[in-house]
Amino acid sequence: MQIRKKTDIDTILDNFSSIAEWDAQGKKLYFIFPDRKRGGQWTLMYYTGDRFSIHGLGENYMDEAEYFFEDRLSLVSFLWDNRSAFNSAVRQAIPDKLAT
């Protein structure tokens, strides 16, 4: 699952559980990928009710709280802007045959 065009993002979001890990304590799915602009990492999280959020963490920074996307278009825009880092993390997280 790679982001090559914006429509790929909808497929990824609809099948998020295939790449994400489960956090039993937080009751959410999450996927971590590099935050190349700030030199840390993003955690993309999914909660039931089709709610997605992000949180950034790095050596010299930590976002105070999760940012919840108000709409799917904002989430798609965020992932499109960070597609290179996201794609790299997906390739490392799942076997090569699934990363196509």
Rank of each mutant, 00 (worst) to 15 (best):
P95Y: 09
D35Q: 00
Q2M: 15
G56F: 01
K27F: 10
D71I: 05
R4G: 06
F68A: 14
L79P: 01
L57R: 10
A24V: 10
I32M: 02
E66Q: 13
Y67G: 02
L57N: 05
K27T: 13
G39Q: 07
G58P: 02
F86R: 03
F52I: 01
G39L: 08
V76P: 01
R91C: 09
D71Y: 06
W22K: 07
L57F: 04
R36S: 14
K97W: 12
T7H: 09
K27S: 14
G39A: 05
I94G: 11
D14F: 12
S84Q: 11
R36V: 13
I19Y: 05
T43Y: 01
L57T: 04
I94N: 08
L98Y: 15
F52V: 00
A93V: 03
E66F: 09
D10E: 13
D14H: 12
R83F: 06
I9Y: 03
R72M: 10
F69K: 02
E64C: 06
S74L: 15
T11F: 15
G26D: 11
D81Q: 10
F68T: 09
A89M: 04
T43M: 07
D50V: 07
M1H: 09
T48C: 03
M62A: 15
L44W: 00
K5W: 00
R91Y: 04
R51V: 06
N60R: 10
I9C: 04
E66K: 13
F31K: 01
D8A: 09
I12Y: 03
Q25S: 12
M1R: 07
W42P: 00
Q92W: 03
S74C: 08
S84K: 12
M1N: 08
G58A: 05
G40W: 00
L44N: 01
P95Q: 10
Y61M: 09
T100S: 12
Y67P: 01
A85H: 07
D81W: 07
F33Y: 15
Y47P: 00
F68N: 12
L29M: 04
N60F: 14
L98A: 11
E59M: 09
L73V: 09
K5M: 05
Y47G: 00
G40P: 01
Y30W: 11
F33M: 03
K28G: 00
T11A: 11
W80Q: 12
T7K: 13
R51D: 05
N82V: 04
G58F: 02
L73Y: 04
S74V: 04
V90F: 11
R91E: 15
S18G: 02
D96W: 06
T43H: 01
Y67K: 07
F16E: 02
L98P: 01
D10R: 12
T11R: 12
T48M: 05
D35M: 01
G39E: 03
R91I: 06
Q2A: 13
D96P: 14
E70A: 10
M1Y: 08
L75F: 04
Y30K: 07
W80C: 03
D35I: 00
K6V: 14
D14L: 15
P95R: 10
D96H: 10
E66Y: 11
D63V: 01
R72F: 10
R83V: 02
S74Q: 15
D14Y: 06
F16A: 04
A24H: 07
A93Y: 01
F86H: 04
K97P: 00
A24E: 15
Q2S: 07
Q92P: 00
K5L: 04
H55Q: 13
D50K: 11
Q2N: 14
E70Q: 06
S84N: 07
S84I: 09
D81A: 14
